[in-house]
Simulated scan of single mutants.
Amino acid sequence: MHSERASIGLRLAAWGGLVFLHFPILIIFLYAFNTEDAAFSFPPQGFTLKWFSVAFSRPDVLESIKLSLQVACLATLIALVLGTLASTALYRRSFFGKESISLMLILPIALPGIITGIALLSAFKTLGIEPGIFTIVVGHATFCVVIVYNNVIARLRRTSQSLIEASMDLGADGWQTFRYIILPNLGSALLAGGMLAFALSFDEIIVTTFTAGHERTLPIWLLNQLSRPRDVPVTNVVAMLVMLVTMLPILGAYYLTRGGESVAGNGK
Rank of each mutant, 00 (worst) to 15 (best):
R216M: 15
E204M: 03
F29M: 05
Y255S: 11
R228T: 15
S87N: 06
P44Q: 01
R93K: 11
R92E: 03
Q161W: 05
F198T: 08
L222Q: 07
I25E: 04
I109E: 07
G187D: 05
V245M: 12
A212C: 05
L183H: 07
P131K: 02
L248S: 05
F33G: 02
I115V: 14
H214P: 06
Y254G: 06
G46W: 13
I129R: 04
M240K: 12
V54T: 07
I78H: 03
V81F: 10
G213E: 00
L170H: 06
M104K: 09
L69V: 05
G265R: 12
T135W: 02
T208E: 03
T116P: 14
Q225V: 12
G187F: 14
Q70K: 15
L69C: 15
L248I: 13
A264S: 15
L186R: 01
M1Q: 11
L30V: 11
N266S: 14
G174C: 11
D203F: 02
A72F: 03
A39G: 08
L163P: 08
I153H: 09
F47C: 08
T135K: 02
Y255Q: 05
D203T: 04
R216Y: 12
E4K: 14
T217P: 12
K98T: 07
V146W: 05
T209S: 03
D173L: 02
M168K: 06
G128E: 00
A199S: 04
A197W: 00
E99W: 11
L244W: 08
T177L: 03
I205D: 02
R158G: 08
S94H: 11
I101V: 10
K125W: 10
T48I: 11
N236Q: 03
G213R: 12
E4A: 14
L21Q: 03
I101P: 00
G132D: 01
W175F: 15
F178D: 01
A119F: 04
P249T: 06
P249S: 06
L218Q: 14
L226A: 12
I250F: 13
L244K: 04
G259A: 11
I220L: 14
G132H: 01
F47Q: 07
I65W: 01
P233G: 00
E36D: 08
A32R: 02
V146E: 00
S41G: 13
P233I: 00
G117M: 05
I147R: 02
I27D: 03
T126I: 13
V19P: 15
G259Y: 04
A38C: 08
T84S: 09
A212G: 03
N224W: 07
R155C: 02
Q70W: 09
F52P: 05
K98L: 12
G187H: 12
E204Y: 01
T126C: 07
L196Y: 01
I118S: 00
T135E: 01
P219S: 03
N34P: 09
F40P: 12
N266L: 15
S162P: 09
N151D: 02
N224S: 10
L90F: 10
L244F: 09
S188D: 10
F52D: 05
L26T: 09
L49F: 11
A79F: 03
I114P: 00
I28N: 11
R11A: 10
M243Y: 13
R93S: 01
V242M: 06
A141I: 10
I136R: 02
A6L: 12
